[in-house]
Design a protein around this nucleic acid. Structure first.
Lengths: 236, 236
DNA sequence: GCCCGCCTCCCCCGAAATGGCGAGTGCAGA
DNA sequence: TCTGCACTCGCCATTTCGGGGGAGGCGGGC
């Protein structure tokens, strides 16, 4: 691992708040001589936060335009799990192209490389490096640093999860029947069908669903399914 | 990266079926001189498969006893996203201890290190190394190889996802309002609340939900939410 | 041995969601 | 320019869900 990555990882490991992650991104940016290093994180409650070198004005602009909802980097990374060069993403919509152009005006991109990672409870993180260099220089940069970037992303994730664990509610345990019931419901069966599938009465199935709902602290069945999926309790 | 890892990664990259992954695990096991290397994978349809060096008799025994449902390695890794040494897991239940004892009799463990990774559509993968050595030797082994193991796990995942992409159906595109509506529903709001949140009539909200349902090929709203979550279209 | 959690079944009723019928505006890409 | 898609609104009948009761058996952990 190159020295600048080692340094950044050490800062991450020593961090005891988001500010520590922030310093790590700055250290890595300076060490690598690129324009941006950003770690963006959605915790299990859907709260977003970020640590990185983007200017406040770009972040404000980005949020103001609600780019979170259409940013091809976000959209694309939510649908894959291997690192992606921004050039591979779908920039076909006009809104996306507009956004990229504005980003460049704010000193972000056009080159970028983002590493997505998902956590067990719906957490989602993106570790991004970006620069304004040309394609060949960027390709070389990625080829040389890809592995170190992945490992550094892991260090960020480890720390971010540690922060969260501190004030996280434990994931409840669902019984096998509750899991089976939730799985059937998540697959789109209604209560009667799910009950038939499990060969139990519809009422019994309801008991499972309600038990799961209460354990998950969910407001209704759909919410319970969403939570169970997000926490990796069931798989559709 | 140590040579044995490089070799394994090259085999993975060249693989065009599960057999290729299988050969990579064997190569890595032999190169590292440990007893087992296993890659276990649950795709987006919930189908499981594995490539690795466990004996068929252990796999049969494991499945026969339905250990998938209580294996602390599986349970634990489903709830974290950083690599874990088996010793850190919860072996307190009697069933878990029995399973570990049997595993050792079948030549698996007691030392183990598993790296979980989640994909965007509910995929879940575990890359595991295991051996019968003592604690200090194992700690040294992990300390020395942790990073290479993570990178190798990434190569396995990349290839496994590529296999799956081949016969995957394309993810539909939801409009911004549809995504917003689905997100609110997934958070447990009822239609009236979600409509109020979006400042539109309840009927309009229904139109979005139904459009999303049709695009996602879902049988009902809950199913649609499950699919949207599984495909990474929305985050709760 | 007792308690707790899991599994199973029954009834009732109000509230919510679903499905199908409409209609009109406006923006953006072919 | 024109077609399509996104966005917005209304009504009605039917199905499904949600919450409230109550009850019994069975197994594992303290």
């Amino acid at each position: 691992m190159r020295r600048e990555f080692e340094t950044a990882c050490e800062i991450v490991q020593a961090a005891d708040d988001v500010g520590g992650l922030q310093r790590a991104t700055e250290s890595l940016r300076d060490g690598l001589g690129i324009s941006h290093v950003v770690y963006h994180w959605v915790n299990s409650r859907g709260e977003r936060f970020g640590a990185g070198t983007y200017s406040q004005s770009w972040v404000d602009h980005y949020l103001e335009r609600d780019y979170l909802r259409m940013d091809p980097v976000i959209i694309g990374c939510l649908q894959r799990f291997d690192p992606v060069d921004w050039k591979e993403l779908d920039w076909s919509s006009r809104a996306a192209r507009t956004m990229l152009q504005e980003a460049v005006e704010f000193g972000v991109g056009p080159q970028g490389y983002s590493i997505p990672i998902r956590g067990p409870a719906g957490q989602f993180a993106l570790f991004t490096t970006a620069d304004g260099c040309d394609d060949t220089a960027w390709s070389r940069f990625i080829a040389e640093n890809q592995r170190d970037l992945i490992l550094t992303a892991h260090e960020f994730n480890r720390k971010a999860l540690a922060f969260e664990r501190d004030f996280d509610m434990p994931t409840p345990t669902l019984s096998p029947r509750e899991l089976a019931a939730m799985t059937h419901i998540a697959k789109g069966l209604n209560r009667a069908q799910a009950a038939a599938e499990m060969d139990i009465s519809e009422h019994t199935l309801r008991v499972y669903i309600e038990a799961a709902r209460h354990k998950l602290g969910a407001l209704n069945t759909t919410h319970a399914v969403a939570r169970a999926l997000s926490r990796g309790l069931i798989v559709v």
